[in-house]
Nucleic acid binder design. Structure first.
Lengths: 335, 335
DNA sequence: TTGAAAGCGCTAACAG
DNA sequence: CTGTTAGCGCTTTCAA
């Protein structure tokens, strides 16, 4: 009920010292059961909430997990990874009584991380993406800040990571497309700087080269999170009569645009064009788009659990989940 | 560079007292320019970060905005509102140097809010949904905690709110459907307890009754965020030969399921069935689903700005944005 | 098993 | 314009 109760108020009301109250709050063993009960009763009845802020100040470690999200990049928030990983993370953190802080950053991830660590004393950090040899990771490692990476992570080992074998998955996709005698397979990627995307690209190359197919620049495109980029690429193909007969898209939104373009231009799916999404959003099933069944919610769950394990027990884990291709209408055999 | 610098270290390095450092940190006017510059230089060079935690403790007010998200409700995180409002909020908070804390709650929103307020001393709260006479709002009001509501909010006035006229929008949708001589118009709602949904329902009723059409229970369904609920409703219609000739869906995911069902069952859109989504996600445009053009990013922006205005200047604002119907293929005239 | 006292890093009077 | 001092609410030695 009451407003700004402090540990001292509780101590007074229970007739003990604030140290004792602190002890029961922290569930320390060296408290007489009866005392503990009495204190607990007072806490219960008074509606007292201990200040996480004060606790953080003295321990210089909070129960906040920093979630790094990019600066000024709408497309990121629109993809499945963000919301599903967020959901998974939220679920598991709730269980362990941690909370999430997301910062609105200043353009550079490292700044955000430093802010998390130095000004908010986060107990750990979750990274939804990394770049090769990521400076953020070096910072976290040097400063012994626990963290978990979701997705590929070039250049680091012995860290918390939950990932898929993106490269292998991509090879399988390319293979399945080649088996249908598709010869102009494009990859509309959305951020080729990220390690995860690089893995996909590696798989794309490998898949093609293994079958003796050339890797053409015009079919391996970056920056396709921009609507404009998609349509201008498509127009270019039209003008040069080099329209792909299969497109692999980094995310579902790109797929939606492709779908729309094909409808307008009377390009039949899958006869004239196969579509494959690297995300598994709700659209795909409804509209029959083939994709990989990456479980981002699970990744969020696991990444959160790993982080807590590091924070509380110093453990480090790496998990590689198994992927699976979901072949749907959009990538059926055309001829 | 260095690790755990405090204000005292900076004071020593700059040859002043920590109060002075504090003053330049808080940009107080009463500091000699040269002193200020010297201190700033030391801060810059040392890589010092002031502790937001300590500051919060003494001011009992942080620069954290609490974002309430529901407990164990995946569908929520999957809808457009969450990610777009989050994006918009993030954008504006960045500008004013605030951050977001999201809590993983304990099942009841009020608990989460109390935790925000009492243990983290958030400077304000953003609500993405409310129920009529919401206890959370009463708590916030009573405790003078600044907050902004996104969406409808029954039972409260004089609060920060950014909303649309959901009821009017729904009337327009129903009208446009009736004009096409659709006579079995269903509304697949996703959470009829929320004020926003209630506004829509109000509009649904009004729209039908105005034209002398009955409001049938079987066509006004709740809980449709569950995939199962959607399909069982649809099956029921089939068995009783009462399949609607128009369905208005609370969100895009419901729409996707409807789309899928119609494809499988050879129900033609829009000939046999019109579809209208109450969200404006990326799918709609691609697949040609009619919808309202609600701008959730803008709502997030505005709600954040309002909150900051309240926190910093005690202002209160209510904004009702203008909606617009986006008529696409899924709701074209059938006959 | 408990209490007293000393901080954690910062802000905010109050003097000077 | 600047320094001194007293806390903010909590944890954590150290004694008792």
């Amino acid at each position: 009920m009451n407003e700004n109760l402090t540990i001292i108020d509780i101590a007074r009301m229970a007739g003990v010292s604030k140290s004792t109250v602190s002890r029961v709050l922290n569930n320390e063993p060296r408290v007489k059961p009866e005392t503990k009960e009495a204190v607990l009763k007072v806490i219960e009845e008074s509606g007292y909430f201990p200040s996480e802020v004060a606790r953080t100040l003295v321990k210089s470690k909070s129960k906040l997990v920093g979630l790094i999200t990019p600066f000024q990049c709408r497309s990121f928030y629109r993809n499945e990874l963000f919301r599903d990983a967020f959901t998974g993370l939220t679920q598991v953190l709730k269980t362990y009584d941690y909370d999430i802080i997301t910062s609105s950053g200043s353009g550079v991830e490292l700044d955000t991380i430093q802010k998390f660590v130095r000004t908010y004393h986060v107990c750990g950090v979750i990274l939804l993406y990394t770049i090769p040899d990521d400076p953020s990771l070096h910072y976290l490692l040097e400063n012994h800040v626990p963290f978990s990476v979701i997705g590929a992570c070039e250049g680091f080992t012995g860290i918390n990571q939950v990932t898929y074998d993106y490269q292998a998955a991509m090879v399988e996709i390319v293979d399945s497309l080649l088996e249908q005698n598709r010869t102009r397979i494009a990859f509309f990627a959305s951020d080729t700087g990220l390690s995860t995307t690089r893995s996909y690209i590696e798989g794309y190359r490998t898949g093609l080269e293994r079958r003796g197919m050339p890797v053409l620049e015009k079919y391996l495109l970056d920056g396709m999170e921009e609507e404009q980029a998609i349509y201008s690429a498509l127009r270019r193909y039209q003008h040069t009569h080099t329209m792909p007969d299969a497109i692999i898209a980094s995310d579902d939104i790109i797929c939606c645009h492709l779908l729309r373009f094909c409808q307008e231009e009377k390009i039949r799916i899958p006869e004239d064009m196969a579509l494959f999404s690297l995300e598994n959003g709700p659209v795909n099933e409804a509209v029959g788009i083939s994709c990989i069944n990456l479980d981002y919610i699970r990744m969020g769950n696991l990444a959160g659990k790993m982080l807590i394990d590091t924070v509380e027990h110093g453990q480090t884990t790496r998990i590689q989940l198994n992927h699976q291709l979901l072949h749907r209408r959009s990538s059926q055999k055309s001829s």
